[in-house]
Design a protein around this nucleic acid. Structure first.
Length: 244
DNA sequence: CGAAATGTTGGCGA
DNA sequence: CTCGCCAACATTTC
């Protein structure tokens, strides 16, 4: 579920509740839930993998982490533990296994929206500067870095690196400028392909290397390895992806 | 059934 | 105090 594009889909699902007034709040999330009763959900904002339900003076920040999920207009209360339920006169929203907290409204203005690969405000120039200033960082860590490519997750990382033919452990400082630009362009580009495929329920079908064992180009066995500071699994082809 | 995984946070030791 | 590493968390799938 929860890489950036999936969060965009969640926002679309929740969008009908914008403008509606909260009538009841429940769930096991620990924060001052009652203060939101009677408030109007003004807007739903996403930043990378985070979602903000914006109210007048504060916002509820949702992060689905690895296994989070949500449902809308559930009729019966499901047995899995409910982290947060928001009730409106028009329906309800349930969130499960996620991080939920309330943040003051000023928190939103501190966010660097230009770092979100899914955003209209995405700023590739800025991303380029960040990459240049971290020459010793591995590309796999750079892609997973939420301050640089907010919204990119492990699946997107693996697919992007395959598309541009770069081995995950390559150092940013060794990348030719052209490759660096491709990295930035594809991080956004692939995220939108991901969104499109996810919307059509055909995402997995389009995975070229993630969880795969054979290179779709040369047929050679793919390498599966924990890479980078983050020690996240990478799938790559030693022949088609160059180590810089 | 055990292990691993789309992710982040907090805590610990150096 | 700061940095870096790692365990913890929780659910689903293979």
């Amino acid at each position: 579920m929860p890489e950036g594009p999936s969060i965009i889909l969640m926002k679309e699902t929740l969008q009908p509740f914008a403008g509606q007034q909260v009538t009841e709040v429940s769930g096991n999330a620990q924060f001052e839930k009652d203060s939101f009763i009677g408030q109007t959900l003004l807007e739903i904002c996403t930043f990378g993998k985070q979602t903000y339900l914006v109210f007048e003076n504060s916002a509820i920040r949702i992060h689905l982490l690895m296994f989070g999920s949500y449902s809308v207009d559930e009729q019966t209360k499901p047995d899995k533990s409910l982290r947060l339920a928001l009730f409106f006169s028009t329906g309800n929203i349930y969130f499960y296994t996620c991080s939920v907290k309330s943040v003051p409204i000023e928190y939103l203005s501190a966010i660097d929206w230009e770092a979100d690969v899914m955003s209209d405000q995405w700023n590739p120039k800025k991303a380029e500067e960040k990459l240049k200033s971290n020459p010793k960082m591995m590309v796999c860590d750079a892609l997973m870095n939420q301050d640089i490519f907010s919204g990119v997750g492990n699946i997107i990382k693996n697919e992007v690196l395959f598309r541009i033919g770069v081995q995950p452990e390559s150092l940013l400082g060794n990348l030719p400028a052209k490759k660096r630009k491709e990295l930035i362009a594809e991080a956004r580009n692939y995220s939108f392909d991901f969104l499109k495929w996810k919307r059509e329920f055909v995402l997995k079908k389009h995975w070229l290397v993630h969880t795969k064992s054979v290179c779709p180009v040369c047929g050679q066995k793919l390498v599966k390895k924990q890479t980078g500071v983050g020690k996240r699994r990478s799938f790559y082809c030693e022949k088609d992806q160059k180590l810089y």
